[in-house]
Design a protein around this nucleic acid. Sequence first.
DNA 1: ACCTTTACCTAACGAACGTTAGTAAACAAT
DNA 2: ATTGTTTACTAACGTTCGTTAGGTAAAGGT
Lengths: 193, 193
Amino acid sequence: MATATKIDRRTEIRQTARKMFKERGYAATSMRDLAREVGIEAASLYNHLSSKEELLHEMCFDMAEQFFQAFSVAVADEKSPAKKLRAAIKAHIHVIASNLDGSTVFFHEWIFLQDPELARFKKLRSQYEQGFRDIVQKGVADKDFKEVNVKLAVFTILSALNATYDLYKSSEKLSEEEIAESMSNLLLKGLKK
Amino acid sequence: MATATKIDRRTEIRQTARKMFKERGYAATSMRDLAREVGIEAASLYNHLSSKEELLHEMCFDMAEQFFQAFSVAVADEKSPAKKLRAAIKAHIHVIASNLDGSTVFFHEWIFLQDPELARFKKLRSQYEQGFRDIVQKGVADKDFKEVNVKLAVFTILSALNATYDLYKSSEKLSEEEIAESMSNLLLKGLKK
DNA sequence: ACCTTTACCTAACGAACGTTAGTAAACAAT
DNA sequence: ATTGTTTACTAACGTTCGTTAGGTAAAGGT
């Protein structure tokens, strides 16, 4: 059982760390805070991890991978830019909804990464955004979308999507599908009749 | 000149603090870091402020006031919900563009406020959001807007707007007016032709 | 039965934290 | 000329930080 126990503790520590980094932020969460929450001494944490920053690093890059994975699967099935965009939006929201703590850390705490990884992280982010821009660009080229500023449009879309983790802590009972549907409609068809 | 010098230092400290809280976050900015940037000793800061948290507190509530002020001025001039919304969007973006450091702190660092002020801050935020919801609600009632989920629509709009501070550090030469115009169009008329 | 590994502990490291006390110099007001 | 205020300093306070060293007891494999 040694291995199984270890994996459980490992997972528990990472889960707890995600929740605490989300709630108080990376810089304001101490290893002693984390240890207390897990129920062991701070020094004992180091049997399961090599540094505080490693925790953050893992969270950020794990989420990045999930976003990439979900995007490429979602987009592959669709033909038109509009459908691709809707699918990408839905996939993005799904990843957030399935990883509320992790995605919050991903969006807010990546600034505390140190520079070889920080640069790699930024590059991944911009690649991901490029995927959205390619879809919108194609839509404009096809005369299916208006002649918008593509960068700004994608910025607007992703900014709205990236805030959706906030929706799940309110008392409103909105499902993932409702959120994705409403946001897609608003962004594609607008508020005006 | 004693008074003038004091005001200058006071202002300089607060300006520098805004910039540093924005760049590294409140928790990761130490009073010694701040003092070094200003060019004095950490202890000397306390001639110009009473605590680190006071700095954050001032920044957050000063920005809140600016958002409220700009909103009410902008909305007062307009009649239709669509025009009110466009004006509110423009005003909101203007406040951000005129206070890039302060607004970033306002959006990201308010979690570090302590509880009497934290609660007050949250209430102010939700009042501000209600202003937007009232406009959209009116638009729906007037059959000028689609029958959207009002809370979700405003959430989407404000999430997009609140991220715009990010646009000014990119190399793109987008003016405030372009940003406000493009975002308003996208949110009101949508991406699809 | 012995040896290794795992998972925790206590103790401690040097560094950094926010903040206070006490003081000296510069300047303004009387 | 004197007094009081402002702005800075050095020194230090008690606390907390991330992390390491070294030890112990139990479990697992051979």
